[in-house]
Simulated assay, not measured.
Amino acid sequence: DMNEGIIARFRTMAIHRPSILVGHVVGSVLQCLMSVLLVGAVAVAIGFRSTGATALEWLAAFGVTALIALALTWVAVGMGLVSPNAEAASNNALPLVVLPLISSAFVPIDSMPGWFRPIAEYQPFTPAIETLRGLLLGTGIGHNGWLAVAWCAGLTVLGYFWSKATFDRDPS
């Protein structure tokens, strides 16, 4: 959008400047949540069964997923705004794709080598994954729920202010 001229047109209109970014983020988060619902429906169709999760726990899991999507979208918007072109923007988000792979998503932290445990334990995806597991599979959540919300809130605020500052500074 930055190279096509539509953003330059929006900048000349009498609209709230951050609304351009907020609109993009809202659309991306809604698209992500629709994808999650589709994947969840397929998972249930092929046999996934939650062990005793209540409707409230399902709603909480959806809320955590929405928070993760919101946080990562704001960070991705910031990365996109500092990128010189669309190709670089898509490549800059690669570390976000790798983070779930080095979390507790596939391997329990206790079975990881000692030197690798802090990397997996102290990053945003591990508490989010453990919270989702706890809500949907009946395992304990412990402090992971609050950590997941704190990570999401922190990344959302950081991403928003980074994106807004970059967008306001960019004259293109």
Rank of each mutant, 00 (worst) to 15 (best):
G154S: 03
I102W: 01
G134I: 00
L101K: 08
L38R: 09
Q123C: 03
S103Q: 00
T156K: 01
I141S: 00
L99H: 08
G140Y: 05
W115T: 06
I68D: 14
A120I: 02
I109D: 02
L137A: 02
L38C: 12
L158G: 06
V98Y: 10
A66T: 15
G145R: 02
R133G: 05
V98K: 07
V98F: 09
C32N: 14
T166D: 09
S103H: 01
G52T: 04
P118F: 04
F161V: 08
C152G: 07
N91P: 15
A105P: 02
V157S: 07
R169M: 05
R133Y: 05
T51E: 11
K164Q: 11
L135K: 03
W115K: 10
I68A: 15
L99M: 11
D110M: 03
G142S: 02
W162R: 12
I109W: 01
A93R: 13
V97L: 14
F161E: 02
L94Y: 12
T126Q: 00
L99T: 10
I129A: 01
A45E: 10
W115A: 09
I68R: 15
A93K: 13
P113N: 05
P113L: 05
W146C: 02
A69E: 11
I129W: 00
V98E: 05
S104D: 00
P118D: 04
S50Q: 04
I46S: 08
W74P: 08
N91D: 15
L137Q: 02
L67I: 09
A69F: 11
V149G: 04
S35T: 15
A120Y: 01
T139G: 03
Y160L: 04
V97G: 12
I119S: 09
C32R: 12
V36Y: 06
F106E: 00
W151V: 01
I119K: 07
T139N: 00
S163N: 10
P127L: 03
S83T: 06
A89C: 15
V64T: 14
L101M: 11
H143R: 05
T156P: 03
A120K: 00
T126E: 01
P108F: 01
S104G: 03
P108W: 00
A43P: 05
A53D: 03
T139S: 04
L136S: 04
T65F: 13
V157R: 05
